[in-house]
Computed example of a mutant assay.
Amino acid sequence: MITLLRSLLCMALMAAAGLAQAFGLDDLSKQLGEPAVIKGPFIQEKHLRALPQPLVSKGEFVLARDHGLLWLLQTPLKQDYRLDAQGIARRDPNGWQTLPGNSAGSQQNRLFFAVLQGDSSGLQRDFDLSLQGDAQHWQLRLTPRSLLLKQVFKQIDIDGGRFVERIQLLETQGDSTVLRMPSSSSAGSLNDTERRDFAQ
């Protein structure tokens, strides 16, 4: 009877240990990097100290693990962006045009890309990362390491579950940006239009 109780106790402790196992950065990277394609709507709010109301923009995004990120702005104006290994491109009537590497917002766009893709190793080069929660509901805080980033960002807070759901960038000057992706979904592959956009 004592042997049975010990066995049951050991099994219970093993199960509890499994449940208590910490959800770490490697787990988060694997979870976010697993889907081949993630897409959905986004709502971005830019809070400026000089304005009483935030500037709101909306659109759709497509994140393809093997290709890059399509950022399709729909309001207040229509403008398409593509972020991939070659850099950032903007679509105009003549097709995709690569933007200069030091263009305004390029660093922020690359950061979004790394976050959405779950590239924790890339983020760790520039930030101290603090993760809380579990696979269903987690919070990740990024605190800048480099002097250059410290001049721009105070901290970046990211919340999510299966996918990234909310990103808040707090800037040192008091402005902030909140990006919400309320209903993202995964897909096994790109559709024909998305494939053409990445191929051009």
Score class of each variant (00 low, 15 high):
Phe42Leu: 10
Leu13Val: 03
Met14Arg: 04
Gln21Ala: 11
Arg49Ile: 09
Ala85Trp: 01
Asp126Gln: 05
Ala50Gly: 05
Asp159Ile: 04
Arg141Thr: 15
Ala89Tyr: 07
Gly174Gln: 03
Thr98His: 04
Asn109Asp: 10
Leu77Asn: 15
Asp157Pro: 00
Gln44Asp: 00
Leu55Lys: 13
Gln53Lys: 14
Ile167Ala: 00
Ala104His: 07
Leu131Met: 04
Gln139Met: 10
Gly68Ser: 14
Gln200Glu: 00
Gly105Ile: 05
Ala199Ile: 15
Ser130Thr: 09
Ile156Tyr: 01
Ala16Cys: 08
Ala135Met: 15
Pro100Glu: 00
Leu131Tyr: 00
Glu194His: 01
Ala12Gly: 14
Met181Trp: 04
Gly122Asn: 04
Asp80Pro: 03
Asp128Asn: 01
Glu60Trp: 03
Leu8Gln: 06
Thr172Ser: 12
Gln136Ser: 13
Cys10Thr: 11
Lys78Glu: 14
Leu25Gly: 11
Ala20Leu: 12
Asp119Ile: 02
Leu8His: 03
Leu179Ser: 12
Ser7Tyr: 00
Ala50Asn: 12
Phe42Asp: 06
Arg6Lys: 15
Leu9Asp: 01
Glu34Gln: 13
Gln124Met: 04
Arg141Cys: 13
Asp159Leu: 06
Asp134Ser: 15
Ser57Val: 03
Leu25His: 02
Ser186Val: 05
Glu34Ile: 09
Leu4Glu: 06
Ser120Gln: 11
Leu149His: 09
Asp134Thr: 14
Arg141Gln: 13
Gly118Trp: 09
Gln21Val: 06
Asp126Arg: 00
Ser29Pro: 03
Phe153Cys: 08
Gln173Ala: 07
Val115Leu: 11
